[in-house]
């Protein structure tokens, strides 16, 4: 009950000051879904510069990264926002997994420790978001509990969600499976790496924000 009341007060205050502050759009999802690659795509398209470093090794992003004042346009539509790239949310982080990527034990343990802190920070930031883009790897099982928990939490907080089924350039990608897993949300299939279908992504973003 107290939680609901707190949430209601937060939303009322958010709405009151909505006109004054910059819109915050967060990138959320499991590790290696392509959040930073998408952040880089957006920043390259509209600012001409990248935002962070993407890597095939999980948990490359271990801190919240913010890019302020991104302005995107499509016809007469215009959107100003701060983009927040968050660390991938996971329920387990095993330093031994990093050893398989050629890191030594000390580096692996350090990365694991930083990654756990990153997950905690990403969860703490959920309340700050106005809109969330959930970035999922379309080649992976969309029914993972992390995906369901993130999206369920956003729904409970009444935060608008756009689901991006990323990596559609790969043969194994299955957008329909992602759509079937989350039928109540808009899903757009893109390749953040190669730029496939990003125009549709920006159109979907305008729709979700408005």
């Amino acid at each position: 009950m107290i939680g609901i009341l707190k949430h209601f007060i937060n939303r009322v205050f958010k709405d009151l000051f909505k006109g004054r502050k910059q819109l915050k759009i967060g990138l959320y999802g499991p590790p290696n879904g392509g959040k930073t690659t998408l952040a880089n795509r957006i920043c390259k398209d509209w600012l001409g510069e990248e935002m962070g470093t993407a890597s095939p090794i999980p948990h490359e992003t271990r801190e919240i990264n913010i890019k302020e004042s991104i302005n995107i346009k499509s016809g007469k539509k215009e959107l100003d926002f701060n983009l927040i790239d968050t660390p991938g949310i996971a329920t387990k982080i095993d330093y031994e997994d990093f050893l398989k990527h050629g890191m030594n034990e000390k580096e692996s343990k350090k990365r694991a420790k930083e990654a756990t802190k990153g997950v905690i920070d990403a969860i703490k930031w959920l309340d700050e978001m106005d809109v969330v883009i959930v970035v999922l790897d379309a080649t992976k099982d969309p029914f993972s509990q992390v995906n369901i928990t993130i999206i369920g939490n956003l729904a409970a907080r009444e935060i608008p969600v756009l689901i991006v089924a990323n990596k559609v350039d790969l043969r194994k990608s299955k957008i329909k499976k992602v759509q079937a897993a989350f039928p109540q949300y808009p899903v757009v299939g893109i390749s953040a790496k190669f730029g496939n279908n990003v125009d549709e992504f920006y159109e979907s973003l305008f729709t979700v924000v408005n």
């Binding site: 387990k92 095993d94 756990t116 802190k117």
Partner: peptide, 18 residues
């Protein structure tokens, strides 16, 4: 998930949840 992350160390790698 948050509490699990706080508990992770060299011995405990986290959980699987469904």
């Amino acid at each position: 998930i948050k509490t699990t992350m706080e508990e992770i160390d060299d011995e405990f790698a986290g959980i699987e949840l469904a």
